[in-house]
Each structure stands twice: as C-alpha cells, then as structure tokens.
C-alpha cells in the first residue's frame, strides 16, 4: 500500500500543478442541460439534467436499453444530441474542453491479433508520430499506478479480463483526465478482481481529484464504493446516495 501511494504522489506531483493553475477544484465540473438523444424516431434519452463534480464517483444504473451507454457517448461527443453539455472550471467560469478518459466494456481484439499492451499505448498516445521515450515512461507510470507494470510486452489477446481492464484504465489515465468514463468495465470479471478494481478507482479519485462516471450492472457491489447513484431509464428516475437508491428499488420490488 505504502509503495503504491508513494507512486501516486510522484505521479500526481507531475500533473497536479498543471491542473491547479486552471482551477481551484483541480478539475472540471460537467453540466448537462435538457439533453435528449433520438435514434430514428425513438427517444433514447429524454430531457436529462445532470451536474457532475470532481472528486466524485457517480454510477449510472438502469435496465438494458435505458440509455446509459448513450449518455457516455454523448459526453464523448460520439452521438448527436439536443440540449447542451458544458465543461467548466469552478473559478474562471471558463468553458473548456476537458481531457476525457474512457474505459470501454471490451475492445474488439481478435484472438490472433499481434497487438501488445505497449502497441495499444503507442497507437493511442502517438497516432501520428513516433512513440518517444518520454511517452514510454508515462506509459510505465500509468501501468504501475494500476498495478499492471509487468504486462507492457504482452499480447492483449492473452490477458485475463481483470488484467485487460487495468490496462484500459491505465490508458484512460494517460494523460490524466478531468473526467473518467467507464462503460460496464467489470461485466466479465470475478468478484475479487472487481472489488480490487473499485478500490483502485477510489484511490485514483482522491489522489487525482477525478470526476468518475461509471455505468454498471452490478448495483450492489458498485453501491459500496460510489458516492452517488443515478437510476436512468430514458429519464432520470433517481439521483441520490447509493443507499437511498437501493432502498427505493427494494421497496418497489416488495410492492410488486
């Protein structure tokens, strides 16, 4: 533990001064106003208002087709939407484009793909240029942060589900994001690895003042770690601390 925390501080030491210059809360707040997403004629998301702060771990739950992934995609700018999404710093009120880290559910890695972990970093960090020494050092730092330092030379297709998620997380942390989005990253992972992963996320959250938004199916486990739980089904059904949301869900189930 001490060792990892020490590395966090070293890593944070490089990056925090840069962020502090722009903001007093070391990050950004994200404001979603009247967001709607249409797919064909059906509404996937209907008039969503949300506000995310930094150093906050928010989980989004809801049934299949509730628009959870679509909400993340809207934040990434990958789907067209009505309404507005603004990213701003607390002090300056300046609207800016934040760095967004994204951890996918799974990537379409062919089992025969020659792609290694360091290849994945190379194509993401330096798509148009040579993968230089400085970037390689950053990659090693990020992999060390998530406890995957030994995987750099391995083929992605040979990693286990838990190892792969740590690699994706390390990738999302390079460069250190203001907003970290995770799309059901733990759906193929055993309970022990999932708990480890959540603990890691919480450590990252407080070390780097991250704003974390995670879509999850495993509501009882995520409730132990998240600060806030949003129940989504095209609209926002609940938005509260996890314990209250769970209580409400249990009551509803009893009534049924």
């Amino acid at each position: 533990m001490m060792n990892i925390d020490g590395k966090f501080k070293k890593f944070a030491g490089h990056i925090l001064p840069l962020i502090q210059r722009h903001s007093t809360c070391y990050g950004c707040c994200t404001r979603i106003d009247h967001l709607s997403v249409l797919f064909g004629k059906s509404k996937i998301l209907d008039d969503i208002d949300l506000h995310f702060h930094c150093t906050n771990f928010v989980t989004i739950i809801g049934p299949n087709g509730a628009g959870k992934t679509t909400l993340l995609k809207a934040l990434l700018g990958e789907v067209k939407y009505q309404g507005s999404i603004t990213f701003s710093s607390f002090d300056a009120k300046s609207k800016s484009i934040p760095t967004i880290g994204y951890v996918p559910q799974k990537l379409a890695i062919d089992p025969t793909s020659p792609l290694t972990v360091s290849d994945l970093f190379a194509i993401t960090m330096a798509p148009f240029s040579l993968f230089n020494q400085q970037q390689k050092i950053k990659m090693q730092e990020s992999l060390t942060t998530v406890g995957a330092a030994a995987q750099a030379g391995r083929r992605l297709a040979t990693l286990s589900g838990g190892e792969l998620q740590r690699v994706y997380l390390a990738l999302a942390l390079t460069p250190l994001p203001n907003l970290l989005l995770l799309d059901e990253p733990l759906s193929a992972i055993d309970a022990k690895s999932a708990d480890d992963f959540y603990q890691l996320l919480n450590r990252l959250k407080s070390s780097f003042d991250l704003s974390i938004i995670m879509v999850s199916h495993d509501i009882y486990r995520v409730a132990k770690y998240a600060d806030r739980m949003i129940r989504l089904d095209k609209k926002i059904i609940d938005d509260d601390i996890p314990a209250n949301v769970l209580k409400k869900i249990e009551e509803e189930q009893r009534n049924v």
């Binding site: 990958e78 994204y102 379409a108 290849d119 194509i123």
Partner: peptide, 12 residues
C-alpha cells in the same frame, strides 16, 4: 490501428 481497435477510444 486505433480506429480499428475502438472507434470510441479514437473519439475520446
């Protein structure tokens, strides 16, 4: 390569 591995990753 990046685009083929994940469009969303490329977008991010």
């Amino acid at each position: 390569w990046l685009v083929s591995v994940s469009p969303t990753l490329a977008k991010s």
